[in-house]
Design a protein around this nucleic acid. Sequence first.
RNA 1: GACCCUAUCGUCUAGCGGUUAGGACACCGCCCUUUCACGGCGGUUGCACGGGUUCGAGUCCCGUUAGGGUCGCCA
Length: 472
Amino acid sequence: MPSPGVPISYREVAVRRVLGQTRLVKIRVRFAPSPTGFLHIGGARTALFNWLYARHTGGTFILRIEDTDAARNSQEAVNVILNGLRWLGLDWDEGPMSGDPAGPSKGDCGPYFQSQRQDNYRRRVEGLLSKGLAYEQEGAVKFKMDRAPIVIPDLVVGDVRRELTDREQVEPDFVIVRSDGQPVFHLVNVVDDLEMGITHVIRGEDHLSNTAKHIALFRALGAEPPRYAHIPLILNIDGTKMSKRDKGASLSTYMDEGYVPAALVNYLCLLGWSPKNNREKMPLAEVVEAFDLPQILRHNARFDLTKLIWLNGEYIRELGDDRCYELSTAALARAGLDVGKYSTDYVKAALETCKGKFKLFGELPAYAGFYFKDEIEFDPEAAQKDFTAENKPRVVKLREALARLEPFEADPIGATLKAVAQELGVKAGVLVHPTRLACCGNTAGPSLYHLLAILGKERAMQRIDRALAQIP
RNA sequence: GACCCUAUCGUCUAGCGGUUAGGACACCGCCCUUUCACGGCGGUUGCACGGGUUCGAGUCCCGUUAGGGUCGCCA
């Protein structure tokens, strides 16, 4: 028994639930992406909801790769999925351990690549054929679909009575094996869910209409369909659907732009689900505890990058020093700033002055880049405003005072600046602005006193002199 | 074209017949302050429309409109 205050694992939380609820069937859910070369943000949320439900119930989260379309499959494409899920922290209990379809996997219901399950599909199709529930036509195999409406009992949407569309009335049966021998999605999806013992199918609402076909297939296979939960889709901020081309549609965008995984996960939790207690930023363990299917919203949600960025800032503020250092230097390196030239102590001290000041690691190069450049550029607009003839003698006076200062540390620097300002009969800001611009190149930045100290007297003087030289 | 889902501030949402319609992001003020950010205080903004049901409707029913999804030898 862990002592109070010591975090317990999700698994423990889940086990406790099960013991408390005496569940007879262990819940099994799956995320079944197709390796297309990128992981859609909506897919990431589907994976998250499945994972949450598994962890909440003490069930099993399965990863299955739907690589039936050999033409656009590759190990790299599978790795995009695996790495994306790992980055999000969504660990799977069963599924592949690498992008290699023939490689090792964990779990007793493998293979977890559809390309490795051809025999299973063939057997099932033969069964349907022999029972007269499917038939051959022009080399393809078609399934005899029910003509009557099918009721889909959905945990999120409620009972949905699905009638045939006009086209389906003309031809209700659909292909389950192509004439080239390849089984199609509806068939493989159902067979795998059946053979892997999936109890709950949690997937995007775009599959709701297709579910009638899946239910019919399950029945034809002599099995009870799983429980369904169709979750609403994620739309662009303008309400249009998110296509592959929309920026922000791919998980890799967030991985590359310096988001904190936990922040994105937190944000995703809040799209289409609500803890209903006005909580926004919440630890994953709390979400796991509260998450359940019936509370999932029924309407689509728009992806609000602004709010994600806010949340990301909240998470950055709480990041440990090491992790912060790691993400910071990675962001600086991406921007082409060579941090390696500087001592670790210097970099750490520099980054310390930026802590809590930005919401995205992508902002860091612009915010703190001046620490890692030999020569900086001055913001032209700010230079116009602050590098004035009137300010020149003031800055000169400050420069002289700072040049004499020893030790060159934040507190005495601040005291010196204030003293000079008082002597000149101006507010501190009058000196701060041009000096900041001279040393950072920007009007915004870390505490001037601290950044001067970190830059060191010599470099600070150089920068001030260079700025002074620009003033007429 | 047919079928299905959906509809509360700009956005994410709370609300499950009686509320001054609450919170968060964003936005606008003020305070704090060496800039920015944070923080604090305050503010603007919403029940798509039309019919019902009811003493009473954001909440229930129907319709309209709008948005999204599906109807493939794609997944």
